[in-house]
Design a protein around this nucleic acid. Structure first.
Lengths: 66, 66
DNA sequence: TGCAAATGCAAACTATATCTTACATCGGGT
DNA sequence: ACCCGATGTAAGATATAGTTTGCATTTGCA
């Protein structure tokens, strides 16, 4: 479950905690997703994408094959 | 959690059960996702998208605002 | 160098996605 | 009218996403 969340968040100059707050999850959840250590729900993915002004595909689609 | 899975699956002329089998989930799971009655994991979304030759965005992104 | 914010990590807990089994319904074909 | 494949639905069990708390580590900055 590799993804582009970390890179995108850093480019947006916000912290894990700020992102987590806006979305309504914990900092740990964001941390684990960024590390690819788990498999978030679709709702969460959409929430993250909207907050970072990206689409699902940009953050989560075939990140490996880049 | 509205999405385009049902329409896309029907266009592909396969049944819920066939799709479920290929992905490795139950027919019920597909049924509930199509109805928007729950919130699938990212892995599942990706598996469905690949099986239907679509991307995440095509199946799950801002389906409401169409 | 040293402090403080940001991140990593881990255990125990809660919520919910998904499975299993089972039955009901619906529509098309004969 | 009947059969059968496809779908809807529901209850109980299990796996795992996400929380909470707490502490360790890293990194930027005065």
């Amino acid at each position: 479950m590799k993804n582009n969340v970390k890179i995108t968040r850093i480019k947006a100059s916000i912290t894990q905690e700020q992102l987590a707050r806006k979305i309504g999850v914990t900092r740990q959840t964001i941390g684990l997703i960024e590390k690819g250590e788990y498999n978030p729900s679709l709702q969460l993915c959409v929430a993250i994408a909207k907050e970072l002004n990206k689409t699902l595909d940009e953050l989560f689609w075939e990140v490996d094959t880049k």
